[in-house]
Write a protein that binds this DNA or RNA. Structure first.
Lengths: 372, 372
DNA sequence: CAATATTAAGTAAACGTTTACTTTAATATA
DNA sequence: TATATTAAAGTAAACGTTTACTTAATATTG
């Protein structure tokens, strides 16, 4: 009603209603501890006036006295900045939903390299969720001020919890699946461990090699070079070395192969089967649908949020890091099939499943993704 | 050094250094007003101890006394939540860069419908940038507390500034370009004005109609239906009504057409030219490269940030909304060509430019995008 | 009706900074 | 030597909430 052009405060509401600011605060927060009570009419007046004035509590003041913010920061590989394709969208969504259900707000901010080389938000947060990675300086800072944090699919410092994917197991399953289909010449397309740091790069590549060794199968050239040109890769791996299946590090590489294979006169899956990690939304609408190894994205997000809130509730000295590893699962589509000597003969789609030795429903069951 | 497990405060640093908290505050902020000064050794000691303790000022306390946060909130069509393809990435980046250069931090948050139906962050911000749109409740709130805000490519309330694109002009240019190429049967593929609310939907569609009328050209069926199936659209617009050019509402629709045209045995641009709005990064790597109408994304972001900071600096009563409209520009690639009766004959790529009557360099000059 | 319990609040300190104002000691000036 | 100036700080209030503690009025009980 009144035309004050400043933001309304608790004290203003109080004077409007002829009560003290303490009363307003308690009413608005529903805090009836310490034997507090109000008459119903006063309670209604306060909420009404607060609404009329458009009152929003000054979180700064609130934080100051309560020494917590009810805000969780989200860092790393999220969407605020420059990541072209975000594989953590579903994960983030699940985490945020869980946090909001538990009365936490979330925030993310662009790293400000002019202010400081941290990625931490300038205001206090009660905890942090890191998507894949953040700078080591940021890790140091969180450790120093004992800020609870959980890293999703990445590495943490001494007191940080993690929720990671078991890529070694998943690669094993992928190879096993291809073996069961009858493949004996399996190629790998992806970055080599030297070239970037995320652990999935090493895990997937090295497990590819060790699985081949275990089964006495030959390595196919191309796994030892970074994947740059589809044509080069197909030339050596498929045309020269006669690979019958390709395991790709991620969906981006698989998409490239899928898109460029026709230009080299290579049919997928008739001539060569193709499968990859990261079950992103494109994988199922593309033709042929890509067989993938999918991560339990939603579980990752929810678990990370759960762990974080548990840590926050604990007194600082009782906190101890949690490290959870999650299973991934095969999603069988039509880009993989039994190998055929007679190239060009097309395979009925459902042959895949009939002979694969896998029951898709079992593999898609994510009800128990957490490793014991 | 000391093993306190709480976050360090100004007062702690002060007692470590044997000085008062005021001295610490002034040194750390470089605030030498009111004739303040320190001995060099004390100054160094303070900064050193602050660094050792990992001191970060409590922004809540700071905000409280300074009554500003130096934080700008980013709302709307950004990347924190569920938008599959974000056309404002470059815009956001430009805005953030400008804001950071001027000592502002930025933040974005997921709308929390459990707390309140605002999209405003829970903590105070000094200003808001809205990407395309936010809820009307949010607009109301910003107006009520007189929070400065700028809407990019969307509508604002009574005191909100806007930076928008002139879609009417741009559509006119697009049609003119196609006319100059020799096209007389031009189709339009996109949503119809009834179906969603963003002004570009109406502006592009209605200008398409009025331009056709102005030049006495026939409408092609399809403009009056929401674009759903590429096959249906091509069937009527191209095969039945012999359109020689298609103007698509956005790059998503254009991509679909480009991708599905071969299945209907339609060649682009030999049989039909294709162009669209939104010059997203896919448009230039696809084959044939898409002729587009591009927005000055970077300018939009920077301008919005500039306007916002200007408003913030002004005392509340002197603020007055700014409304800026920006030109868009043609980016000519190879999906458009002169119409050919003899379908199937391929067109040398550079013919486009030679006969288009447009000088690409001039059209790409964004140095003066602001309409006078 | 007095003592006690309950209802309905009010009071004031605290959170961590910033900053206008004040103080002290040393040095410069008259 | 007395006074003025300056360097180098210190003091305390204020920002808007929350909350432990207190108080006054009313209701209940014996």
């Amino acid at each position: 009603m009144t035309k004050k052009n400043s933001v309304p405060t608790v004290r203003e509401i109080a004077s409007h209603c002829g009560v003290s600011n303490a009363t307003v605060s308690r009413v608005l927060n529903g805090n009836y501890s310490n034997g507090f009570s109000v008459r119903e009419e006063v309670r209604q007046l306060i909420t009404q006036i607060a609404d009329e004035l458009g009152y929003r509590p000054n979180l700064a003041a609130k934080n100051l006295v309560q020494r917590k913010t009810k805000i969780i920061g989200i860092l790393g590989y999220n969407m605020v900045f420059g990541w072209p394709s975000n594989i953590y969208q579903v994960t983030t969504e699940a985490a945020v939903r869980y946090l909001q259900d538990h009365e936490y707000d979330i925030c993310s901010t662009a790293p400000n390299f002019l202010r400081d080389d941290t990625e931490l938000p300038p205001w206090r947060v009660d905890g942090i969720i890191v998507l894949q990675e953040c700078s080591s300086r940021t890790i140091e800072q969180m450790e120093k001020i004992r800020l609870p944090y959980v890293v999703i699919n990445g590495l943490a410092g001494a007191m940080g919890s993690t929720v990671v994917l078991d890529d070694i197991e998943a690669t094993g399953h992928a190879i096993e699946y291809l073996l069961n289909l009858g493949h004996r010449r399996i190629a790998y397309a992806g970055p080599t461990p030297e070239h970037r740091k995320h652990m999935s790069i090493r895990d997937r590549h090295d497990t590819y090699l060790s699985e081949l060794k275990k089964h006495g199968l030959p390595r196919i050239s191309g796994h030892d070079k970074i994947f740059l040109s589809t044509q080069d890769f197909l030339e050596t791996a498929v045309l020269e070395e006669h690979a019958t299946a390709i395991l790709a590090y991620d969906h981006i590489i698989a998409m490239k192969i899928l898109h460029d294979a026709p230009a080299s006169n290579i049919q997928i899956p008739e001539q060569v089967s193709l499968m990859c990690f990261n079950d992103e939304y494109l994988c199922d609408i593309v033709k042929p649908g890509l067989t993938t190894i999918g991560a339990p994205s939603r579980d990752m997000g929810k678990l990370a949020a759960e762990i974080l809130l548990t840590q926050i509730k604990l007194p600082a000295e009782e906190r101890c890091r949690q490290q959870i590893e999650l299973h991934q699962h095969l999603i069988i589509r039509s880009s993989t099939a039994k190998p055929f000597r007679t190239s060009g003969s097309s395979v009925p789609n459902d042959l895949n499943r009939r002979f694969s030795g896998y029951d898709e429903d079992v593999l898609l069951d994510t009800s128990k993704n957490i490793k014991s």
